[in-house]
C-alpha cells in the first residue's frame, strides 16, 4: 500500500493543481469551499465535476448538469470492469472503497505497475487512491476558498477558463484515427449551427453529440465490413 502511495505522488501534484483551478471556477460559480470539498470527496472525478459545474452555472438546469457530468464518467464502466479480478479477494467494504477511489490516474498507474510486477494489486490501488482522494478533496476545497476571496472574474475571462479546460480535455481524448475526427467535426459544426439557430446550449450539446455518435456508429460499422 505504501508503494502505491509513493508511486502516485508525482501525479498527485498535477491533480492538486487541477483541483485548485477547478476549486476557483466552482467558487466563482457560487459554491462554498466546503461544498466543493464535499463534491470532490463524493464524486472524485475531475472532468465530470467541471462539466457539471459549468452546465449548472450556465443555466442547463440540475438534471442536465448531472446528466452531462455522468456521461463524462462512462469510461469508468470499462475501467472498473477491468478491476474485477484484482478486487475479488477484498472484503466487501474495501471493494466499495476501492471502487470509489478508482480514478484515471491510480487505475492507469496500478495497471502499468502490475504489468512489471504481478504482486501489484488491490493494496497498491487503495494506497494510490487514498493519496489522490485526499489531494483532490483538499485542493478543490482550498481552490474554492481562494476563489471565494477573489473578485468576480467573469469579466476577466472566467468563462474562457472553462473553454480552455474543455479544449485540454478534448485533446487528451483525441482519437488516433483521422477518420474518427469526422464525428468530432460534425458535432462541433452542428453545435455551433444549432445554437446560432437559437437552440438552448444544453439541447444543442445533446443533439450535436448524439449526431456525432450516430456517425461514429456508422463509421465503425462500415469499417468492419471493409
Amino acid at each position: 500500500m505504501t508503494r502505491g502511495m509513493l508511486s502516485i505522488l508525482p501525479l498527485a501534484v498535477g491533480a492538486a493543481l487541477y483541483g485548485l483551478a477547478f476549486g476557483v471556477l466552482a467558487a466563482q460559480a457560487g459554491f462554498p469551499w466546503w461544498g466543493v470539498g464535499l463534491m470532490g470527496a463524493g464524486v472524485h472525478a475531475g472532468s465530470s465535476q467541471i462539466v457539471a459545474v459549468d452546465q449548472f452555472s450556465t443555466g442547463s438546469g440540475l438534471v442536465g448538469a448531472v446528466f452531462a457530468g455522468a456521461i463524462m464518467n462512462l469510461r469508468y464502466l470499462g475501467i472498473t470492469a477491468s478491476l474485477a479480478g484484482i478486487l475479488a479477494a477484498l472484503p466487501l467494504w474495501q471493494r466499495l472503497v476501492a471502487l470509489h477511489l478508482t480514478s484515471d490516474e491510480n487505475w492507469a498507474l496500478t495497471m502499468s505497475e502490475r504489468r512489471k510486477d504481478s504482486g501489484v494489486g488491490a493494496a497498491f490501488l487503495l494506497g494510490a487512491g487514498s493519496v489522490m482522494f485526499v489531494t483532490w478533496s483538499v485542493s478543490t476545497a482550498v481552490g474554492a476558498q481562494i476563489g471565494t476571496l477573489l473578485p468576480d472574474l467573469d469579466a476577466a475571462g472566467l468563462g474562457f477558463a472553462f473553454t480552455a479546460a474543455f479544449i485540454a480535455m478534448a485533446r487528451s481524448m483525441a482519437p488516433r484515427r483521422i477518420s474518427a475526427f469526422l464525428p468530432w467535426g460534425v458535432t462541433f459544426g452542428l453545435a455551433i449551427g444549432l445554437m446560432s439557430a437559437g437552440m438552448s446550449r444544453a439541447l444543442a450539446i445533446l443533439a450535436a453529440s448524439l449526431a456525432g455518435l450516430a456517425l461514429a456508429a456508422l463509421l465503425r460499422k462500415s469499417g468492419r465490413h471493409a
Partner: peptide
C-alpha cells in the same frame, strides 16, 4: 469510448458560438 469526447467537443463549440 466515443460519447464523452463528443460531449466535450460540443461543450467547446457551444461555448464559442
Amino acid at each position: 469510448e466515443d460519447l464523452p469526447g463528443l460531449i466535450v467537443v460540443a461543450l467547446v463549440a457551444s461555448s464559442l458560438a
